[in-house]
Design a binder for these strands. Structure first.
Lengths: 142, 142
DNA sequence: GTACACTGTTTCACGTATGAAACAGACTGT
DNA sequence: ACAGTCTGTTTCATACGTGAAACAGTGTAC
């Protein structure tokens, strides 16, 4: 049960990523607004970490960044209590192969068979490398 | 771009997936509410496709489903005009290896080196299988 | 019968994310 | 000097997602 529901989506990282890319490419807020459909005012708020963008805008912006939502947002059940701003693994790590498989199945470049084969390959490889001991959980990065 | 900003996050699929899993496991709305931290009323609305859940609840629920957000939600820039309810690829397919890599890097079960090795493996395998023909040149560049 | 416990749905007051527009600066050209 | 055009930020009214609680069924026990 998701220990007491206080979890927030980490939008600070989103904001930082956007500002980084925006300034890196020399675009203004209004430029990005035109490209993404998110208004400049909202964009400004997001970059400065004020408030939390809604689902549509998160989708538009992660799309613009070409980054998976959960990578940038973190959130949900497993947000490490301690470390604030690190992008977090949203899913139980055991689910990694499932995540990859889902992505593969959604990939229109692949046939169903190929997607299956690729995820199988990934599953095997992952099993090989992941939690090498029985207590990989002690590894508290950072 | 972004077509005229009318893109919505596809929450219908989210709702369907939740109802499927919930009924499949014989849970009530209030059971799921306890597990996820999303209220039963909101849960009901989501399952019935009324309104759009906010970012926090999407995170909680995709986490509960163990499914990547963009797989279930679709959304953003690439939502296929034609087919409504199909889960869509949110990212350009070319980005698949990057997506997987991001996920791997966020995986605390893996050391940085291992994550790198795995994503390299994946990248090679994917390149092998993806767009086998030459008609994959629909790509839009911005 | 009538209680009681459960179900999913809807009502309600409240908080807040939103975009348009107003705003404050920084620069440039005239 | 002034005017014009850019920048990011903030104000404002509006829209809407939210959870608690009320509601409407349905089933079971007594």
């Amino acid at each position: 049960m998701v220990r007491d529901a206080k979890s927030f989506v980490n939008t600070n990282e989103l904001g930082r990523a956007i500002r980084r890319k925006r300034e890196g490419t020399g675009l203004s807020l209004r430029d990005v607004a035109d490209e993404t459909g998110v208004s400049a005012s909202t964009l400004s708020r997001i970059e400065n970490g004020t408030g939390k963008p809604d689902a549509d805008n998160i989708a538009r912006l992660t799309g613009w960044l070409n980054v998976p939502m959960e990578r940038i947002m973190g959130g949900g059940g497993r947000n490490a209590e301690g470390d604030e701003n690190a992008p977090v693994v949203y899913f139980p790590q055991e689910a990694m192969p499932d995540i990859v498989e889902a992505h593969l199945r959604a990939d229109r470049n692949l046939t169903a068979d190929t997607a299956k084969a690729l995820s199988e390959l990934f599953r095997v490889a992952y099993a090989q490398f992941s939690h090498p001991g029985s207590d990989a959980r002690n590894r508290k990065r950072r």
